[in-house]
Amino acid sequence: MKTSGAWIRPLSGDYLIFIIALALLGWLFSHYWNWQAATRLQIHQGGQLIATLTLDQQRELSVSGPLGITRIEIDHGRARVHSSPCTNQYCVHQGWLSHAGQASFCLPNRVSIRLMGASSSYDSLNY
């Protein structure tokens, strides 16, 4: 009687396909997976770096600028501008940031937050 052993024991060609598939998957990930999780948050006010904080915490911070207080919230791996004294509220509308390289600026109150990772996928942002 024929056993199912022929199915269990792969041939060398199967290994080759397995290796190629694995290598291709690895390459696709490294090439296209540009989202790197952020680990740190940098806060600038008036062009000065005022704080670098780890994202691995739950915390609210207040930064004062020319218009008043910008509140920044950190929540276990993500961060956002929670409230801002500016009228346009673009920084607040941007919502949660969680990937390295993402940033939110409040030009009127001169506050910016930027997420940093082990590595950023670009050097500067064109907008």
Binding site: W35, G95, H99, G101, S121, Y122, D123, Y127
Partner: peptide, 16 residues
């Protein structure tokens, strides 16, 4: 130098 291009409707980039 590598530059990210802001996505017009999402946070983050559309391309680098």
């Amino acid at each position: 130098w590598q530059v990210g291009i802001q996505h017009p409707r999402q946070s983050g980039t559309i391309a680098t």
